[in-house]
């Protein structure tokens, strides 16, 4: 980013319009401010109190002047309203034939479900140069889907669907994905001790949009997502993928993997295959079925000593297998 630029990079078709308006307002404000302060300073100096110089009584004012400065600004203001509204209308009316992605906001993660049913958490593949429509809702409190690079924002409201559309104008790089922020305050885990970790509170409720070529997205829709590229030449692709999910889907916010105590959820090291004591008595063996259930429906079996705070995750079977493989690999260490 340009060190001196006031605005983030322009990554959507809206950005140039919005920025033009922003800069127009900026220079209008600079001009008005400088004019006002200049007049003020000049008068303060010119009419400073000096012995022998009296103030001139005000008299009855000047109606023409009053009317001028009452009504002339209206012209500027009408223009501001009009331009702002014009772009706003474009932003609120998506074109036909959009690519639709469903978004669910929850404390504190973003879930993206593509039209092929694949769900990504805290990251999403987005085709470039394609109108994309987001159909958004929340499963708990208010959130707000904010993408500074696109200049778009919309609240995500429980019990209601809101929509947002955009067209990305450039590919993103893995080092600098397009960042999604949550702009509506949604709280923090009480007593949290890792507030700077990703996806543990309102300020870290982020997601990465990966803007990819249209063909790549089409392939993804057809064939589904496999392990991420960085796992291509891993020793065990599944373990690598599992670790990727652990790091990118927000599991790391609550689960440690080093065998030490701490964290909001059970440490994953040494879980697989063990006998797990459950809250309210009883126990289960941590087999594949149990892990799967724990991910899709965490409140079914709550591990003893922990609260029922884990949100359900809609991972696909392959992804769950990858997580299991990763958990097993932890035991081997």
């Amino acid at each position: 980013m340009n060190q001196f630029s006031q605005l983030p990079p322009q990554m959507s078709t809206f950005a140039p319009d919005v920025d033009w308006m922003y800069l127009f307002l900026f220079w209008l404000s600079v001009a008005s401010f400088v004019a006002i302060v200049a007049v003020m300073v000049y008068f303060v100096f010119k009419y400073r109190r000096r012995p022998g110089v009296e103030a001139v009584p005000t008299g009855h004012g000047n109606t023409a002047l009053e009317l001028a400065w009452t009504f002339l600004p209206l012209i500027v203001l009408a223009f501001l309203f009009h331009e702002g509204f014009r772009v706003y209308v474009q932003e609120s009316v998506p074109p036909e034939n959009t690519v639709d992605i469903h978004v669910t906001g929850k404390q504190w993660s973003w879930e993206f479900t593509h039209s092929n049913g694949i769900t990504e958490t805290n990251e999403a593949k987005i085709p470039v140069h394609t109108p994309v429509r987001l159909i958004m809702s929340s499963s708990d409190v208010l959130h707000s889907f904010f993408v500074p690079d696109f200049r778009i924002k919309r609240d995500v409201v429980p019990g209601m669907y809101t929509t947002l559309w955009f067209e990305a104008t450039a590919l993103s790089t893995p080092e600098r994905p397009v960042r999604v922020f949550c702009a509506e305050y949604c709280g923090a885990l009480q007593g949290s001790t890792n507030g700077n970790d990703r996806n543990t509170n309102h300020s870290t409720m982020m997601a990465d949009l990966h803007i990819i070529p249209q063909e790549e997205y089409a392939t993804f829709l057809r064939e589904g997502g496999g392990p991420p590229a960085e796992c291509a030449d891993a020793v065990d692709v599944n373990v690598c993928w599992g670790q990727y999910i652990y790091a990118h889907n927000g599991c790391s916010a609550c689960h440690e993997i080093n065998g030490e105590a701490g964290g909001h959820g059970p440490n994953w090291m040494g879980v697989f295959g063990e006998e797990i004591a459950l809250e309210g008595g009883g126990s289960v063996t941590a087999d594949d079925a149990y892990i799967k259930r724990s991910i899709l429906d965490p409140s079914a079996d709550v591990v003893s000593g922990f609260g029922n705070i884990m949100p359900p995750y809609r991972l696909r079977d392959q992804e769950i297998d990858a997580v299991i493989a990763f958990m097993r690999s932890l035991n081997a260490q």
Binding site: V18, L25, S29, L80, A183
Partner: peptide, 24 residues
């Protein structure tokens, strides 16, 4: 001087396209 700055930036927020970006 300061109210002028505060008020003029209020116009950024009243303008729809810029408020979408600047809100919150």
């Amino acid at each position: 001087a300061l109210f002028t700055i505060g008020g003029l930036t209020g116009l950024f927020l009243g303008t729809l396209s810029t408020d979408i970006h600047l809100h919150d």
